[in-house]
Amino acid sequence: MIIKQLSDNEIRVIIFKALSDEVRLNIVTMLYKKQAEMSCGEIGDNLDLNKSTASYHFKTLREAGLTTTRKHGQNKYVSLNVDVFNEILPGFLDTLA
């Protein structure tokens, strides 16, 4: 999905759907508090998620534009896309601290 081709309201719907799940909200909170990228395995371990469940949630957040994923060797690293939060939901991240 190419988010730039969508209307502002369509983008908001995708973002709100992604954030409406407690696990995904916990992932966002964890990344925000860490203020750095984290490996998918580290996040999954901290939230007691199996690989397939964690992968599903990472994909949902990535497709909503809320996170980015970087692959390095066998590992994948996830970080928040703070610009999207600041543009669409200004101040939201500060409520997670």
Rank of each mutant, 00 (worst) to 15 (best):
F85P: 03
V13I: 15
S7P: 03
S20T: 07
M38R: 02
M38I: 03
L49C: 02
R12E: 13
M38Q: 11
L6D: 09
N26D: 15
N75W: 07
S79P: 01
H57A: 12
F85E: 10
N75P: 03
K33C: 01
R12T: 05
K59L: 08
I11V: 15
L61I: 09
F58L: 10
T53V: 15
A64C: 11
K33V: 00
E63G: 00
S55H: 14
M1P: 02
L61S: 03
F85K: 01
L49Y: 07
A36R: 13
F92A: 04
D45E: 15
E42K: 09
L96H: 04
V13N: 08
D48Y: 14
R24L: 05
G65Y: 04
Y32Q: 05
R24S: 08
V82Q: 12
I88A: 00
N50R: 09
Y56K: 14
A36V: 04
N46Y: 12
D45F: 13
V13F: 09
L31R: 06
L66W: 07
I14W: 06
V13C: 02
H57C: 08
G41V: 05
F92H: 09
V84G: 03
N81M: 10
M38C: 02
A97K: 10
G73C: 06
I14Y: 06
I3Q: 12
I27L: 00
F92V: 09
D94C: 00
N86K: 13
L66E: 06
D94L: 11
R70D: 08
